[in-house]
């Protein structure tokens, strides 16, 4: 019984995949507000976490997220069904984030590696949530952080993450495991 209980506890919980009907984009393109709200509600956490992992700045991530949803609205009528609506959303979000980064680089003159993380976690009331989130963004590399956050929030699988980030699947898996190991070690000390 104990063994079964231990196995059941250690078994990773089933991921909650985000299901989006492809027709939702036609509805948005046709001016359906409900459809847009539905899409926003389903995808906002994933898009925000992705933007945050790319830009490592809360304000920039929020701006990028707003802009990304406006672009989704303007291009919704161009959507062509290919069975991957989340990939379409993430592609627009990435392009917006990259544009944001270029603008920031242009104004500040610093590279992506030199950007200081500025993640304000004061809004997070739960202590453990805040510590885990801060630790993840502080101790993990940019790619490790992207992979772990996307996996935890967006509901994407490792294969989909490797396609989205254009990183080999083996690299995604190794970075994911290595990042979690680092996090575990750090969190065990802090908590």
């Amino acid at each position: 019984m104990l063994i079964f209980a231990a196995v059941a506890y250690d078994r990773p919980q089933e991921k909650e995949t985000i299901f989006i009907e492809e027709t939702i984009f036609y509805r948005i393109g046709a001016g359906d507000k409900t459809a847009f709200c539905e899409l926003y509600e389903k995808t906002r956490n994933a898009v925000f976490s992705y933007a945050l992992s790319l830009l490592c700045n809360r304000e920039d991530a929020e701006d990028a997220m707003q802009e990304a949803y406006l672009k989704i609205r303007s291009a919704a009528h161009l959507y062509q069904p290919m069975g991957k609506p989340m990939a379409w959303v993430f592609t627009i979000a990435r392009n917006v984030c990259l544009m944001k980064f270029r603008q920031r680089k242009h104004y500040s003159g610093v590279s992506l590696e030199e950007i200081q993380e500025d993640i304000d976690c004061s809004d997070i009331e739960d202590r453990e949530d805040r510590i885990v989130f801060e630790t993840a963004f502080h101790i993990l590399s940019r790619e490790e952080c992207q992979i772990i956050v996307l996996y935890a929030v967006s509901g994407l699988k490792h294969r989909e993450i490797s396609e989205l980030l254009s990183i080999p699947l083996s690299t995604v898996l190794s970075k994911y495991n290595r990042g979690l190991k680092k996090l575990r070690k750090q969190l065990e000390e802090r908590l």
């Binding site: 956490n45 976490s49 809360r58 707003q66």
Partner: peptide, 15 residues
Amino acid sequence: YIQDHIKKAVIKLAP
């Protein structure tokens, strides 16, 4: 545990 807490934090932060 890590994944759950990260998800909760993002939900809190996402506007």
